[in-house]
């Protein structure tokens, strides 16, 4: 299963990198969201899959899944959410101000 997950991560990272490199601002934002997904999945995979019960002591299991990566991923998900929300509003404002979301047309600044 680890092999399958690793390959999935590889695909997600490739696609998100491709999206980040495009010209459309929205695709870039989508790419960043996808990259976060890939990273989370990678992190969880690296911690080892299906080893023990969920990290809840009420289960009284003999072994539990590693709780630490889960805690870290949880933090990452929330932070990623905040950043994405900010990016979205920023791209919306950019579009409103410049009437385009094409990064080619957005290059340069007024004082050049």
């Amino acid at each position: 299963m680890e092999i399958l997950m690793i390959l999935t991560v590889g695909v997600i990272v490739s696609v998100s990198t491709y999206l980040i490199l495009t010209k459309s601002l929205l695709r870039v934002v989508l790419g960043l969201v996808m990259l976060a997904h890939g990273a989370h999945l990678l992190f969880l995979t690296m911690a080892g899959l299906k080893e023990g019960a969920p990290p809840l002591l009420g289960e009284y299991a003999s072994s539990y899944a590693d709780p630490l990566p889960q805690a870290l991923i949880l933090t990452a998900i929330v932070i990623g959410f905040g950043v994405t929300a900010f990016l979205l509003v920023l791209s919306y404002q950019t579009y409103k101000a410049h009437k385009t979301d094409d990064l080619d047309e957005l290059r340069g600044s007024a004082d050049e």
């Binding site: 989370h40 969880l44 299906k50 969920p54 990290p55 809840l56 899944a65 889960q70 991923i73 949880l74």
Partner: peptide, 9 residues
């Protein structure tokens, strides 16, 4: 993958 909290979030 036994991560209920993550799934919820």
């Amino acid at each position: 993958f036994r991560a209920p909290d993550l799934a919820l979030t």
